[in-house]
């Protein structure tokens, strides 16, 4: 009898811990704007046809540049996990550019760090 109660408690605690560990990183309001059927391969193939779509992208930072009143980041894309985190052990889909309004501290948003972002597709750019 006592053992059954103990098991029930352990079950409850592990469920709670599981929920705590999986807290989402984006607010539900923002997350709900993201199209769940979106695929990065399609976006990379034809960015022009995706302009205006709200997407969730994740990757690791390759380069950061502070512009006059925005910050430009180059990221190496990786598939997103359930929480929106980049799964860096999977093959990368290539690079994408991120234009963040305002100043992002380049010494915090350093090359190598993992980043997830929800934003609107603006344009495509050819770089060398």
């Amino acid at each position: 009898m006592g053992l059954a109660i103990a098991w029930r408690w352990m079950g409850l605690i592990s469920v709670l811990l599981g929920v705590v560990a999986c807290a989402p990183v984006f607010t539900p309001a923002v997350r709900s704007q993201v199209d769940p059927t979106f695929s990065y391969a399609e976006l990379a193939a034809s960015p022009a046809s995706h302009v205006g779509r709200v997407v969730l992208l994740a990757g690791t930072i390759v380069d950061v540049t502070n512009l006059q009143d925005s910050t430009r980041l180059t990221l190496l894309q990786y598939p997103t996990g359930r929480r929106g985190q980049p799964r860096t052990h999977r093959p990368s889909g290539g690079r994408f550019l991120l234009l963040a309004p305002g100043y992002l501290e380049a010494e915090v948003y350093r090359p190598g760090r993992a980043l997830s972002v929800i934003g609107e597709v603006k344009d495509s750019k050819t770089c060398r």
């Binding site: 540049t65 502070n66 512009l67 006059q68 009143d69 100043y103 380049a106």
Partner: peptide, 10 residues
């Protein structure tokens, strides 16, 4: 006081 510098283009 203050020191003004350049970080990237900012």
């Amino acid at each position: 006081g203050r020191h003004t510098g350049q970080v990237g283009e900012t």
